[in-house]
């Protein structure tokens, strides 16, 4: 049997969508018993939410003032303190999990698997490498725990008809004082979250300015879509970094992805490989984005986008 510990990602009030997707991944391991750890300063509502997620046996609450804003250097030793007996420790392949899980693995003196996209058996997994240009099947040693991050775009969220038990774990370790959280600058928007939105509209370098990027927001808002961008648009300052889609930004899998004025560099495409339908709008008929687009339209975005918005509105 496999005993799996999942490190929940959450906002202190609610679970991040990545948590339910990690759980889905873990349920694909044969004979798995799944526990979820919630590190927070007050994890009651998050623990209650996760206890309802299908497939979870137990939710473990680990409370500490230092957990109000998670820092890998502080969470990792806490993970170790409850890790005994688990065969697998999983976290999401979001910036939270990418930051934390290798630190956990190193403290256990084991290697880590990044971006699990398919479970073949309890110790055999598929993961993308080279910006998704190759998929490697890897086999983890059975003599040590498997520590891995889960490529959340590869999994659906589990349902919420469960009723797991909730436990509190006491911490009797000293946490380091060498790392301090100062603050976070996060854009607040009413738009659907890029990582979970069913529909996403993205803009590229072609938009030319922050002001011009407004037409992308307008289009997205006309049918309730999330908004993303290419690296070039972020680098140029048209939009903030959290909107970047791609190898080094967010990996997303919406039902509909509309790429506007984006050329389709491999680093961008790796972020949208799992999208249901890709639409490309670009004035260059030779742009590589058309090779992966399900629907392509050659045209000037400054004509097409307002026209499309009018047609939808």
């Amino acid at each position: 049997m496999s005993k799996i510990l999942i490190i929940a990602e959450h906002t202190n009030d609610t679970a991040n969508a990545s948590t339910a997707k990690c759980i889905q991944c873990a349920t694909e391991i044969p004979n798995a018993e799944i526990d979820v750890a919630v590190f927070s300063d007050n994890g009651e509502s998050v623990a209650n939410e996760i206890a309802k997620m299908d497939g979870v046996t137990k939710v473990i609450r680990i409370e500490h003032d230092a957990n109000s804003n998670p820092m890998a250097a502080l969470i990792a030793p806490q993970v170790i303190s409850i890790s005994k007996g688990y065969t697998h420790i999983f976290g999401p392949s979001t910036t939270f999990g990418k930051d934390l899980m290798p630190r956990v693995a190193a403290l256990m003196d084991v290697n880590q698997i990044s971006d699990v996209m398919e479970i073949l058996d309890s110790h055999k997994f598929k993961q993308p490498i080279y910006a998704g240009n190759a998929i490697v099947t890897v086999e983890a040693p059975t003599t040590v725990p498997v520590v891995a991050t889960v490529r959340i775009a590869s999994y659906r969220a589990v349902g919420s008809s469960g009723s797991a038990q909730i436990e509190s774990a006491e911490l009797d370790i000293d946490l380091p004082s060498h790392s301090r959280f100062i603050g976070i600058q996060a854009a607040t928007s009413d738009r659907p979250d890029l990582q979970t939105a069913a529909k996403v509209v993205s803009g590229g370098r072609a938009l030319g300015s922050e002001e011009n990027f407004e037409i992308i927001y307008d289009l997205a808002d006309s049918f309730g879509a999330g908004v993303g961008a290419s690296r070039a648009a972020v680098d140029a300052g048209y939009v903030p970094n959290e909107m970047q889609v791609g190898q080094t930004g967010k990996i997303i899998a919406p039902d509909l992805y509309i790429a506007i004025g984006i050329s389709g560099a491999i680093q961008h495409l790796t972020g949208i490989k799992d999208a249901g339908t890709i639409v490309a709008i670009n004035k260059d008929a030779e742009a590589p984005i058309f090779e992966v687009a399900d629907i392509g339209l050659v045209g000037d975005l400054f004509d097409v986008v307002p026209e499309l918005k009018a047609a939808l509105g």
Partner: peptide, 29 residues
């Protein structure tokens, strides 16, 4: 030495099928 994760086999990702081109916004909609 460390207990390493061993690669077993490499494969190319599944290619997306080539889609359609539309002429105008009406076609896209």
């Amino acid at each position: 030495a460390t207990a390493d994760i061993q690669p077993v086999t490499y494969e190319a990702p599944t290619e997306r099928e080539k889609g359609v081109m539309v002429e105008d916004v009406a076609g896209l909609v």
